[in-house]
């Protein structure tokens, strides 16, 4: 008897849980999609009624149709793949160097005095100004594009890394000293995990810049990639191709950012923050 009562109780609990979580997601999706859906419908309708001239702004169904055709022909995947590879490679290189240099600068005074001024000086150069030089040095091949993206990714990651390390609680470092930790152990076991929240913020904004710079790099000269599609669209008077690749950029950017956000939430569950409490 008691057993059954328990079973009933746990079932009741379960339904209660479901009732609490499910509508929350639905509500969020519903509320968030009202505005974009309305805009889409107005856009489609006014295009079909001829209020908007279709050679300037094609209607959504035409754009989707165009993307669909390219996907069927198979050319679309090549463009997406190339762009993704460039962003990925540049992102990795930029993040990696930024973490290493940032750790050194943040942890050791001598490196800060040596390296930080020159990095700050380089930071004030708008990164796109490098493009002609990189093309001159490395041609319009992959390396100049990847390096440009890496440069874009480098700065936010570096700045956040240094700021994160500087903000590490001295009291935690003292705990390591009590246990006779070496400098390397203090960096790897205390400073790096403690500055992780700041680093992840930097990585996310770095990725955003990476997407910005891949567009720049591909517009400057490429034979493949989503940025190249933009130029093709411009030269062939086909706004649907341009808008199509803009949409793809948005989707890919959002997706990669979501991936990072997912990792961030996973690895920062220990944080005693407002976001973890909600």
């Amino acid at each position: 008897m008691e057993h059954r009562e328990h079973a009933v109780l746990s079932k009741a609990n379960k339904t209660k849980e479901l009732r609490f979580t499910k509508p929350k997601i639905n509500r969020k999706v519903l509320l968030g999609s009202i505005l974009p859906l309305t805009l889409l419908i107005i856009w489609e309708a006014s295009g079909r009624m001829g209020i908007i001239e279709s050679h300037l702004l094609p209607i959504p169904s035409v754009i989707v149709e165009g993307l669909y055709q390219m996907a069927l022909e198979g050319t679309l995947w090549g463009h997406i793949g190339t762009t993704l590879m460039r962003v990925f490679a540049g992102f990795l290189i930029g993040t990696f160097t930024a973490v290493i240099i940032g750790s050194l600068v943040g942890y050791m005074k001598i490196f800060e005095e040596l390296i930080d001024p020159i990095i700050q000086a380089f930071r004030s150069i708008p990164s796109l100004a490098w493009v002609p030089l990189f093309i001159l040095w490395m041609g319009i091949g992959e390396s100049s594009k990847v390096i440009l993206i890496a440069v874009g990714v480098f700065f936010p990651v570096y700045l956040n890394m240094v700021a994160g390390i500087r903000g590490v609680d001295r009291k935690l470092i003292e705990v390591g000293k009590i246990y006779g930790y070496t400098s390397f152990e203090i960096v790897s076991k205390i400073i790096l995990p403690a500055s992780l929240p700041s680093l992840l913020t930097g990585i996310r904004s770095g990725l955003g810049l990476g997407w910005m710079f891949v567009v720049a790099a591909e517009i400057m000269g490429a034979s493949k990639g989503l940025g190249y599609l933009l130029i093709v669209g411009q030269n062939t008077y086909s706004p649907d191709v341009i808008i199509g690749s803009i949409i793809l950029f948005a989707i890919l950017g959002k997706f990669t950012d979501w991936l990072l956000k997912f990792i961030e939430e996973r690895s920062l569950r220990w944080q005693d923050s407002y976001a973890n409490q909600r």
Binding site: K171, E174, V175, I178, I190, P193, A194, L196, W270, Q271
Partner: peptide, 13 residues
């Protein structure tokens, strides 16, 4: 030597 501080000083992660 072991040491204990005024605050717990635990690693939050």
């Amino acid at each position: 030597v072991g040491m204990m501080f005024q605050e717990p000083r635990l690693m939050p992660w």
